[in-house]
Each structure stands twice: as structure tokens, then as C-alpha cells.
Design a protein around this nucleic acid. Structure first.
Lengths: 121, 121
DNA sequence: ATTTTCCTACTAAAAGATTAGGATTTGGAA
DNA sequence: TTCCAAATCCTAATCTTTTAGTAGGAAAAT
């Protein structure tokens, strides 16, 4: 697994949501920042296919793309990467920083507590 | 604040640890992956200075570098970035994924529980 | 005093990320 | 079956990141 660049991740996020989509679907969901050209998006999808994050099948004259790597798989990898690079491999230390900074609501805290309870068993 | 590239972060991690250091100090702590050339590291430190992550003072013929941005400041920013880009801005969702994946020990869990207790007040 | 060493400043090139124009293909309508 | 609009394919320019060589100057060694 290799880290995605900013744009690649933006494209993958859309594809993870849509599951099966063509280039036009992705373009139409990108914000006007400005919106990149159709062929630009197409290039990213080709690259993501080379990196084996995507594959496609044909439907008439269109290519329908779909994810090969699932989002949870990537987010896990990505969090581990951050843990190793910024927190010396310590999950506890990452959690400490993040929990303190996140301004969790009381109900969020209760939910986390019951998640922790569950993990003890 | 702007994201650091892989190499930039590697350099900053060393400088955050050493606090005050010259180019040579950083070079000597980089692993042989292979180890980059002295001038390469120097270039990164110049760039990090342009980006205002570092500054330097003179000591004889050497430059002594020191951080302007502190590590906790950057890790916070970085976690927020990940939360927004991969978890749709939801801290709860990031925590859920991370806690489940982290294989926490029982004592880690107890520590987190008391941290959460503390936050309720 | 001259050579060597060490450090910085400058320059630039290779590799990767981002962007998009123009040529080509093709599915399906007429 | 011929033709067109729509989509892909190919190519390349630009920007960022990563890499390192060379020149110059100051201090240290001989």
C-alpha cells in the first residue's frame, strides 16, 4: 500500500461513495475550486488503476470504475502510518492527543466508554 | 500551516527531538536507506526555514537550527486534516476505527477510561 | 603562508504530482 | 453503412519534491 496524494484521495473519496461510476460522475461531484478538466480527472483514474486502487469494466462506450481497495483498509493503513511517523508507534499517545483536542460531547464520551468496555471482554 | 512532505517530516522529527542542531547532527541521525547527501539535508532545512517551521542562529561558521513550529502543534493540525479528509470531519468515527484497530492492552484501556472520565467534568 | 578541511550558498537536474489539449476510437442513431 | 457525438487514449507542459554537485569563504592544520 502506498499513500495517496491529495487529489488522488479526493477522487477516491468520491468513488468510495459512489461505488460504481464513470469519469463524468466524479467530475460532477468535484467542487469548483476550480473544477479540473474532464481529462484531468480521467488521468487520475488511470493512475489509480495503475496503483491498483481501482479497476473498470465496460458499459457501452463508457468505462465504469469501481474500488479494489476499500476505504476502511486505506484509513487503517493511513492511521497506522501517522501513528508510526508522528507518535513513535504509540497508539496511546495518538489517542491522548486526539481525544483531548476533539472537544467531544458527553454522548460521544459515553459511546466511547461503552466501546472500551466491549473491548475488555 | 501546510502539510510536510515525507522527507520534510523525517527531518522535522529529528529537529523536534534535538531542539538545537546543525545540518551534520540531522544527517548523522538519518538511517542509511541510503543516507542522503549532506547538501540534500541542508536543502531541506533551508526549505523548512522558508516555510517557517525552522529558524537558525549562527555559531562560529555553523548554523544552529531550532523549531518555530512545535510538534504538538503540527500533530494536532495533521490529525485534524486526516479527520476532515478521511472521516468526513467526524472525530467519533476516527476514534472508533482507530481504537478497534489498535489492539490496546487492558491497562491502556483503563488509562483511556480515566482520561474520558476527566473530560466529563 | 599555503594547503586542507568544513561549512554555507547557489544551481540544477531527476522523479513524482497535477493539469489539460488534441488525436483517436467507437457505440449507436439516421 | 456511414457519420457524429461522446468517451477514451496519448502526449506533454507545469509545478512540487527530492536529490546532489560545485563554488566560495573562513578556520584549522601543516
Amino acid at each position: 500500500m502506498k499513500a495517496l496524494s491529495e487529489r488522488e484521495q479526493e477522487v477516491m473519496n468520491i468513488i468510495w461513495e459512489l461505488r460504481n461510476c464513470c469519469v463524468e460522475d466524479v467530475v460532477s461531484r468535484l467542487p469548483d475550486d476550480p473544477k479540473p478538466a474532464y481529462t484531468t480527472v480521467q488521468t487520475f483514474m488511470r493512475i489509480l488503476e495503475q496503483k491498483e486502487f481501482l479497476a473498470h469494466k465496460r458499459d457501452g462506450k463508457k468505462h465504469i470504475f469501481y474500488p479494489l481497495v476499500e476505504k476502511p483498509e486505506y484509513t487503517r493503513w493511513s492511521l497506522k502510518h501517522m501513528k508510526d511517523n508522528l507518535f513513535g508507534g504509540s497508539a496511546k499517545s495518538l489517542l491522548n492527543t486526539f481525544i483531548r483536542d476533539s472537544e467531544l460531547s458527553d454522548s460521544d464520551i459515553l459511546e466511547l466508554e461503552s466501546l472500551l468496555e466491549e473491548l475488555k471482554r
